[in-house]
Design a protein around this nucleic acid. Structure first.
Lengths: 228, 228
DNA sequence: AGGAGTTTGTGAACGCGAGAACAAACCGGC
DNA sequence: GCCGGTTTGTTCTCGCGTTCACAAACTCCT
């Protein structure tokens, strides 16, 4: 996290910008599919749902890929962002925990089309090892090390119950995985140098509930209501 | 978003703090289940995966619920946070789009145990209306307004394909739903007063990929590697 | 009762990100 | 070749969030 390879540019892009680059990438893909060859920062910002000033500042961190007075070449900028993120080639990914959510993730087509390839599905439960999900065999969790070594996996997804998550994370780290996407509602502790991103469905709903509670006791405005 | 009911406290809690309250809530529940009656800010912070100073400042926004020299009463603090978030009673929720992800969400037990109750599953595809998922019938999307009115639904979840998301959001807003959790990879535009939170699996992976790319070309440290 | 030890709650400094505003640069017409 | 119109890239300012550091307050022991 501290030192980078000094040969490359090594300009450090702000974390907030990194989080938005994938959004711009998708907006550009959408524009390209609609046949748009060029777009202004205003158009792209609107498609991505952000402020145009913010968009320009974000893009300025990667370089000067626009043309003043004209705008951005959609295909060119799309490639530059994809390259910066690192999704010009596919990343191999393993998914551990093939419950309801694991199934959904394995079948999610967006992974394939956005730079990721699910190379293995793992589960500790032997009764699942007969299954095949999305054309990929479910294999025993003990195969993790072999699979990681074989495919050069660097990213792991955890969709197990909470109580198993830390063990899975430990195993992932010991095989060399350095990036983990965690869907289990648990706090993972990992060594330095390993990134963990957490997606927690309950937390998102609870945040919504907080704001909802503050908006008002019931639907006051924007809806005609008949008194009960 | 601007004015609150002047009768209540109306202290505004910073957004960053709101996002962490559910994490504290879960950590406290976990401590309570382990039989812990009292905990210090250091312990709770460690269980929640944050800095203890940050935890104390966060909690200070809700009031003074701790005792200096002693710490926090686990059960008492747990209730106070649950009350602040608004999950002391269950929130009715509708899920629209019963594909792979919709199935997983409907079956997710964490909703029920954390203050939410799925009252309806909706899908536009008539061939799905025969199904029953997690004990709840799948009903036609056109029933949305009736269901929302019947149960007083304020929170909607969108797990449709991207191209349908905006239409679903519009319909939700028109029925009075003011909080939306969106899993579709699309930018939703909604009127003021409606909150949208977005969960995007591809984006999370792409952020990981960016950092992974910067860590180094291959597994250099922490893993013994045999030259291919 | 008093003092030592512990832990909370908060005031202040610091850094990051958002947004506005503007200069630099490019295109097209004359 | 020059000028007006347009759009990018950047500078500056402001506000929010994080972190440090410490005073206030509580318990326990003597």
């Amino acid at each position: 996290m501290t030192e980078r390879t000094p040969t490359e540019a090594a300009r450090d892009i702000p974390e907030a910008t990194v989080a938005r680059l994938p959004v711009y990438l998708r907006a550009l893909t959408s524009l390209a599919e609609a046949g748009t060859a060029t777009c202004s920062s205003e158009e792209l910002a609107s498609a991505a749902g952000v402020n145009s000033a913010k968009l320009r500042k974000d893009l300025s961190h990667l370089g000067s890929y626009g043309t003043r007075g004209v705008g951005y070449d959609v295909e060119y900028l799309r490639y530059q962002i994809a390259r910066e993120i690192g999704v010009t080639q596919d990343w191999p990914v393993v998914i551990v925990g093939i419950g309801n959510l694991g199934h959904a993730l394995a079948n999610f087509s967006g992974f394939r089309s956005r730079g990721f390839r699910v190379v293995a599905l793992l589960d500790a439960d032997p009764s699942r090892h007969a299954e095949q999900v999305a054309g990929v065999d479910v294999r025993p969790f003990s195969d993790l090390a072999a699979i990681v070594a074989e495919h050069g996996v660097a990213i792991g997804v955890i969709s197990t119950p909470a109580h198993a998550a830390q063990d899975v994370a430990d195993a992932m780290v010991s095989t060399g995985i350095r990036s983990i996407l965690n869907f289990a509602p648990a706090v993972l502790s990992v060594p330095d140098g390993v990134d963990v991103r957490k997606v927690d469905l309950s937390i998102e709903l609870q945040i919504l509930a907080y704001h909802e509670q503050r908006k008002g006791p019931a639907g006051l405005e924007g809806r005609l209501e008949a008194p009960a």
